[in-house]
Computed example of a mutant assay.
Amino acid sequence: MDLNLESLGFTKEELQERVIARICTQLLDGVGYDEDDNEFTTASQFHRQMRTSIKEKIEATINAIAEREVLPNVASYIENLTLQETNRWGEKTGEKVTFIEYLTRRAEAYMQEKVNFDGKSKEENGNGYSWSGTQTRITHLVHQHLHYSIENAMKDAMKIANSAIATGIQETVKTKLAEISTTLKVGVTSK
């Protein structure tokens, strides 16, 4: 009986693939096999350095491809992205809109949403029983900004006025004390 690869059930290519896979496993994973084909680890310094080098090379290659192929096209992807509303079963129900249209609509809806005096919508308020939408969110934000600006301006004006009043009172007191001291006559009598 003549022994060759075909009689053992292997082709030359299959044997090459197995040998390469075994070598790669031993080099990259630090895994070895004994004569009974039991796996054991041999994570030597070489294995660890090889794994680190390969990992760094893979990350560098992925980053280079992303920089070259993906990043220049991100703006185009976002501008050309179309969204369509679906129901809970994933069936398309609404019209297709671009991402920019969707973003614009959401911003408009957010700014035009009715809010209470705290600037909270009915959903944000939690309980809908005592909620009263008296104004839009944009109106609330404008009022809030104006209130803040006016309050700060009034505080500054009060500081200036208080400083001027304090200076005026101090000067008046000094003047009156000087007048009083000149009109007072101090006399000493002894008995």
Rank of each mutant, 00 (worst) to 15 (best):
E95V: 12
V115L: 13
E108W: 01
W131H: 11
Q84G: 02
R106L: 13
G126I: 09
F117E: 08
W89I: 08
G126R: 06
R105S: 05
G119D: 07
V97Q: 11
E108S: 02
E95W: 05
L83A: 03
N87R: 08
W89P: 00
G126D: 04
K96W: 03
L83I: 10
N125H: 14
V115K: 06
G94W: 12
T82Y: 04
R105E: 04
F117L: 14
I100A: 08
A109I: 02
M111P: 00
G126F: 11
A109M: 08
Q84D: 06
Y110I: 12
Y110F: 15
M111K: 13
K114G: 05
E108M: 01
L103H: 02
E113Y: 00
T98M: 10
G126M: 09
K96R: 05
F117Y: 14
R88K: 08
K92H: 13
T82R: 03
L83S: 01
L103G: 00
N125Y: 15
L83P: 00
M111L: 15
E113K: 02
V97Y: 05
E124Q: 12
G119F: 15
Y129Q: 07
E91S: 09
M111Q: 11
E79W: 01
F99W: 12
A107W: 15
E113S: 03
T82K: 05
R88G: 05
N87L: 14
V97N: 04
E113H: 00
S130G: 07
L81M: 11
R88P: 02
W89R: 03
R106C: 06
Y129K: 11
R105N: 07
E108Y: 04
V115A: 08
N127Q: 10
G94D: 11
N116Y: 12
Y110G: 00
N116F: 14
R88T: 10
F99G: 03
D118V: 12
T82G: 01
M111D: 07
F99L: 09
K122L: 14
K122C: 11
G128C: 07
G94I: 12
D118Y: 14
R88M: 10
M111H: 10
